[in-house]
Structures are given as C-alpha cells and as structure tokens.
C-alpha cells in the first residue's frame, strides 16, 4: 500500500509578535493510504478543521507551524508548491454549502472559474461541468448551472461543491463535516454519493466529523483527536468495538440509543479545554477517571495491538 499523505507531529501556535496566544495543534500524526478513508473525529475545538487548513496550506499568517506534511509525489509540502497542488491534487469540501459559494455569481460561473484555473480548455468546460454534475446525481445540469446559490437546497449545493472539488481528479479529498449542515436523509444521500465516487475514482479521503456514527460508516481507519493531539488511532472496526483510550471510550459510551433507553449515558465530566497553550502532561487527565500522578507527563502515541494510543493507563 502506498501512503498518500503523512502528517508527522504537526504543531500550530497562534502568535502575537513573539508571544504565543494559543497552541491549538499540539501533535497531529496521520497516515492515509491511497484509495482509503481516514476518519478524523473529535469535539469542537479539538483541532480537526485546523488540521485540514494546515494540510491545504491555508493557515492564517499569525500561525506558526512545526512538524511535517508529506504528500505522495511532492515530498514535504511547502508554501511554494501548494499553489500547484491545492484544489487539483488535494481538493476540499466544506461544512456549510450556503456560505462556501459566492452569492452573487451563479453556479455555472463559479464552476467555470474553477475549471479555468485547472487549465481546462475553454471549449471543453461546459461539457465537463455537465458530466461532473451528472456524476453527483444532478441530471438537470443546465438549470443548476444557471441557478444562484440561494435558489438551491442545502443538499443540492453540497452536491455542487462535490462536483467542483472533483473537476480535476484529486488524489486526496478532504471532507470537513460534509453532512453536518444537512438533514439526516439528505446527509445520508451525500455520504453514499461520496463513497460511490471514491470507489469509482479511487481518491483517498480525509473525512472530518464530530459525528462518530457518520465517521464509522465511511472510514477504513479512525483517528480520535483531543485538545490538538491524536489520542487514539486504529482500524475502524477495532476502534469502534474495542476503544482503548478513556476519551474514546467515553465518547462512544455517550451516544444515546433506544437500547440504552433512559439508562445513564457515559458522560465525560467537564468540557474540552478552551486554551491549549499551558497544558502540561496528558490533556485529558482533568476529565479522566483513571488519571493519577503518572499523567502529569505527556503520554506518547504508541502501538498497542492494532491501535495507536496515547495514554499511560492503557496496556500497563
């Protein structure tokens, strides 16, 4: 298997001059194989979207980045090469389709701009757009292309965004909460669409979501992030059925269901820390039932059976 993306110890600090304001990413390690899906799951403020921004080279200028991002065929990603890669080899779809499109241009104009940027021959563009829209299940392409974003539903706009991302054939698709803003039935259709496109076109995917069940549905490998670090990573089946890290266990136990009707859900006490710059030791320790003095040091991410786990209390 070839590794398409390898993120090693990615750290991001937000700076004000020389002063560190916050350290939202404190050690992200990811590896995505060609054609496979890595699900990145975690709660608000854990660094999921920022990880995607760092990979795309879209961090704000106040951010200082350490660690490496390696992309197949290009070595380490740096600002100088990103212009050629962003959008064409690594494409991205965003959470909120309504705000991802410019409200004053129609869909056709916006897709055409993207196609021109990919150096596609002018004459071929209309035909290509119709084909791409058909591949995301919109046969009524002429009408869609003439529509403005506010004239389309959330599900249709999300399909348009997927079509836009797939205008050139990317090697990696980053999907940042692609179904969160959609209704359940529409979200499910979109998820199914992404999966079937992936099977046909063979791109790898980084699937970011706070919704554990959505991640479990599409991912081959799942990585759980907490407070800017990957705390557990492993094959989807093992992770879902045999979670090891206390945070992952808590997260899976917190999913309500008819089966657990009115029973106590595992509620993790407290909430995600809002500032990550002064964390010493394990960031989950303040909320963890197992924490003791050993947790005042930061646990490394180590292999335990099929999984990678960062916890002093697992496997000892």
């Amino acid at each position: 298997m070839t590794t398409i993306l390898k993120v090693s110890d990615l750290q991001v600090d937000f700076m004000s001059g020389e002063k560190i304001l916050n350290s939202p990413l404190r050690g992200i390690n990811l590896e995505i194989e060609a054609g496979k899906t890595l699900g990145l799951v975690g709660e608000t403020g854990c660094g999921k979207t920022l990880t995607a921004s760092a990979i795309m080279g879209l961090l704000p200028t106040t951010a200082s980045q350490r660690g490496t991002i390696e992309f197949a065929g290009h070595g380490f990603l740096e600002a100088s090469v990103m212009g050629a890669i962003r959008g064409s080899e690594i494409a991205m779809i965003f959470q909120n389709p309504q705000s991802a499109f410019n409200p004053i241009f129609n869909i056709g104009a916006q897709l055409t701009m993207v196609a021109q940027r990919r150096n596609i021959e002018r004459g071929r563009i209309p035909e290509l757009l119709i084909d791409r829209l058909a591949s995301v299940g919109m046969s009524d392409a002429k009408r869609i292309l003439a529509s403005y974003p506010h004239e389309l539903s959330g599900g249709m706009l999300q399909r348009c965004m997927i079509a836009m991302a797939l205008i050139s054939t990317p090697k990696l698709l980053i999907a940042d909460e692609p179904t969160t803003a959609l209704d359940a039935t529409i979200g499910h259709q979109v998820l199914g669409l992404i999966r079937s496109l992936q099977q046909r076109q063979g791109f790898a995917m980084l699937f970011i979501s706070h919704d554990v069940s959505a991640v479990a549905k599409v991912s081959d490998v799942i990585s759980v992030v907490y407070a800017g670090r990957v705390v557990e990573s492993g094959p989807a089946y093992d992770l879902m059925n045999n979670p090891q890290h206390p945070y992952t266990r808590g997260l899976l136990g917190a999913i309500p269901s008819a089966q657990k009707r009115r029973g106590q859900l595992t509620a993790i006490p407290g909430s995600v820390p809002s500032s990550l710059k002064d964390i010493v030791g394990c960031s989950f320790a303040p909320r963890c039932a197992l924490a003791d003095s050993a947790c005042s040091k930061e646990p490394p991410l180590v292999h335990i059976n099929q999984q990678l786990i960062a916890c002093w209390k697992v496997g000892t």
């Binding site: 709660e43 608000t44 554990v212 136990g253 917190a254 309500p256 509620a267």
Partner: peptide, 10 residues
C-alpha cells in the same frame, strides 16, 4: 458536543 450532550441527557 457528544460528551456534553450525554451530560445534559442524563
């Protein structure tokens, strides 16, 4: 968030 949702449901 999911873990907080569980606290509130409980």
């Amino acid at each position: 968030d999911l873990s907080v949702q569980a606290q509130i449901l409980n």
